[in-house]
Nucleic acid binder design. Structure first.
Lengths: 258, 258
DNA sequence: AATACATATTGTTATAATGACACTATAAAT
DNA sequence: ATTTATAGTGTCATTATAACAATATGTATT
């Protein structure tokens, strides 16, 4: 008993003070993709890094240690809530990053010592998430956070560039096989909005007629008896996504590709 | 210093005696798929479980704690080596299982107490692997291990049925998009062997002519100037897989599916 | 009321991919 | 020479794809 107390005192930690014990060597990092104004964004947070007498601003993805009584999915939802104020958001684990030196690899660049992060080894589970930026109250954004253009991500801390690359790769891969795109659209949307979203994510363009012919075959894409309002041109028909129909008509595709 | 020693002594552990320190809360479990004789198998290991005065045999996938100085990929390769004697085998992480009660969920069935596993919480990273059973020296098999039919997996320990389901799902998903199937074939193989392998994994059948038309378009499938030997019928042409050509001709497919 | 504006909506054609279907070829064993 | 067992191959009807441009319809402006 004495023993345990001594150790706790020797390694004080804000989460211990809050009585929220975490697992020591596992964290979750979240790559939160947001879509708005035909642009794909990603949420990053800054930290001031002392370097050689100067101070640099360095960026990384929001992350947290896993608490002793939660699943990693709960950890990621907690991070989402903290960062965006949103709950019940789609999150998906995409890869575990476990290089024993992953927190130290960039140390030489920063000449930087932060014992709490670098003395111990932390394995992190990468999650990506998709949100519609119209749903986010930007005044809720933590002050050191910002939405960066997904196509202009610069140098990040630790192995976070690698985490970003894997997240983006996985996002695209999954989008080709599941209708995740609906997570990024409002509940009612036009086909043009949907097309622009695909184009933003895959960094390409599609022929409008061929695109529509294709998506019109999705049984879970429901044309509504409603049209766009507030536009100064011909308003487009609104559509919605029917999750039930998707679940029911979803068939695994076993035709392998050459 | 005294403090640390006391704790070590209070929690003796075979890996500590071997001077191989592991992270306390992270393990790797491996679903090793093997293919032989047109059958898809998976390696499971048994353990005797005392239950109400009797002893039951329970099954699970091979797994291990992650060592302090290795990546989880190294952990999985270590497990593969221990179980099959094979090195440089394809392994792939597919999902993290982090339910805080994952080791305890089936306790009530076994009325079983195994403090080393159940007192602490362990998050596990699931890996799947593919091997050709012809490459395995079965005399190397650890005595409590066996190759079970992948289509007849019974109740497993802990959350290992869930792990198996996710592994199989991911295996199939990946096989549709990457030529992993070559991991399960000998270096030189016939088109019929390849077809039967796909049929075993996807639990279906394909039309021979359509199948051949399709795979003949793979630029990395190389017809050899060699034919099968030792068969009492018309011998088939042998083919091999050219990894270089695969890497070079590999293009991401961004045509999304309806 | 007429016109400009901006985006929505729609169809054809040529090419490629797919799915269904059955017969001939050939090496080994007898 | 015959049997046996599997290898290897082609057609046709249907469906999916890619490339391509003109018309329709609301709001805003005059």
């Amino acid at each position: 008993m004495n023993t345990l107390k001594e150790i706790t005192i020797n390694q004080p930690d804000i989460e211990t003070f809050l009585s929220i014990e975490t697992l020591s060597s596992i964290s979750v990092d979240c790559v939160i993709f947001g879509y708005d104004d035909n642009k794909l964004k990603v949420l990053i947070r800054s930290e001031y890094i002392p370097n050689n007498g100067e101070v640099y601003l360095a960026w990384k993805f929001p992350g947290n240690k896993v608490r002793k009584c939660e699943t990693i999915e709960e950890t990621s939802s907690r991070i989402l809530k903290e960062q965006t104020g949103l709950e019940n958001i789609f999150v998906k684990q995409f890869m575990v990053f476990s290089d024993p030196n992953r927190l130290r690899r960039k140390m030489y660049e920063y000449e930087w010592i932060k014992p709490s992060l670098t003395d111990d080894r932390v394995i992190t589970v990468g999650f990506y998430s998709l949100i519609n930026l119209n749903d986010v109250d930007n005044s809720m954004l933590i002050e050191d956070a910002k939405w960066a253009d997904a196509y202009e991500i610069k140098e990040l801390m630790f192995d976070h560039n690698e985490i970003f690359d894997e997240a983006f790769k996985k996002l695209r891969y999954d989008l080709l096989h599941e209708p995740l795109v609906f997570e990024l659209l409002p509940v009612k949307f036009t086909l043009t909005q949907m097309q622009k979203l695909y184009e933003a994510i895959f960094d390409t363009t599609y022929d409008k007629r061929n695109y529509r012919r294709k998506v019109n075959k999705m049984p879970y894409l429901i044309p509504l008896d409603e049209i766009q309002t507030g536009v100064s041109h011909k308003p487009a028909r609104l559509y919605s996504f029917d999750r039930d129909i998707y679940e029911k008509t979803r068939t695994e595709r076993f035709d392998f590709r050459v």
